[in-house]
Nucleic acid binder design. Structure first.
Lengths: 147, 147
DNA sequence: TATGAAAAGAGGAAGTG
DNA sequence: CACTTCCTCTTTTCATA
């Protein structure tokens, strides 16, 4: 992971459809060398996958909320229960009073309420605190640049 | 946006490097038809971009925290101030006691502390409450399927 | 690891049903 | 809208340094 790798990642995060020739030019490499480096980044798992970024509203997921899920038991083994709820985009075990923080996207606040109901149905869950997002300033890839 | 479009999006989210021929097969379409639909999804802004998903730890961003940022003033115009902090991956204006929720990734908790210091330097910011993630259950694309 | 070149395959743009 | 065809460019592999 040197500065060239970071540069390649930055370029791919911006647009992963560019050719290796263009990619190499942007990093001061030949197409072949750029290709080889990217292949290794994938092999090492640094680049996990190539994917598309979608407008949530277009998929009927215009309502964004973060929900703190309190529990009476250790939730460390409950990943599947959260993953089974399609509206949950992320789930993290957290330090602090609650035990799991989830990011939820639904079409309406009514559906958000339904997600909360399903969260309560998970074993050990004792409470939820939902915080609705009014506006998203930005959501961007993890910066490969230091600082 | 019919079911075929949703299917195409689901396949692309999983692996955006597949050929249009493979993509079409997965959605019951010819390569050309799949290509045309994907082109339109991009044109309409449903698909925003093709990008790569990266392992945060490999980029020296192994510490994940969510920070509630309290403020004394309306933060609705402060997007740039948050965007200027490279460690911030997302920033959302929220309903509730705090006014902005940010997702932060740093190499160490020391660097997290430094981000908090820089958050305090933003005009109007009166306080922060950081919640550190101990484990990420999952982070996945927005589900294109209903329910 | 980088380069350069050759073969295999995919992208992109026609025209047709 | 979807399918097919055709041409171009890219990806992928390999030999070489």
């Amino acid at each position: 992971m040197d500065d060239i790798d970071r540069r390649l990642i930055a370029l791919l995060q911006e647009d992963a459809t560019v050719s290796y020739a263009t990619l190499g030019k942007g990093a001061g490499l030949s197409a072949g060398a750029a290709h080889e480096r990217v292949r290794k980044l994938r092999e090492r798992g640094v680049i996990r996958r190539t994917t598309v970024e979608v407008d949530p509203a277009a998929l009927d997921r215009g309502v964004l909320a973060f929900v703190m899920v309190d529990s009476t038991a250790w939730m460390g083994e409950s990943a599947d229960a959260f993953a089974a709820i399609a509206e949950i985009q992320e789930a993290h075990v957290i330090a602090g009073s609650a035990s799991v923080l989830v990011k939820v996207r639904t079409a309406t606040t009514g559906q958000l309420q339904d997600v909360l109901r399903r969260l309560y149905a998970i074993e050990g869950v004792s409470g939820t605190q939902a915080t609705v997002s009014l506006e998203t300033f930005f959501e961007r890839p993890v910066s490969p640049l230091p600082g």
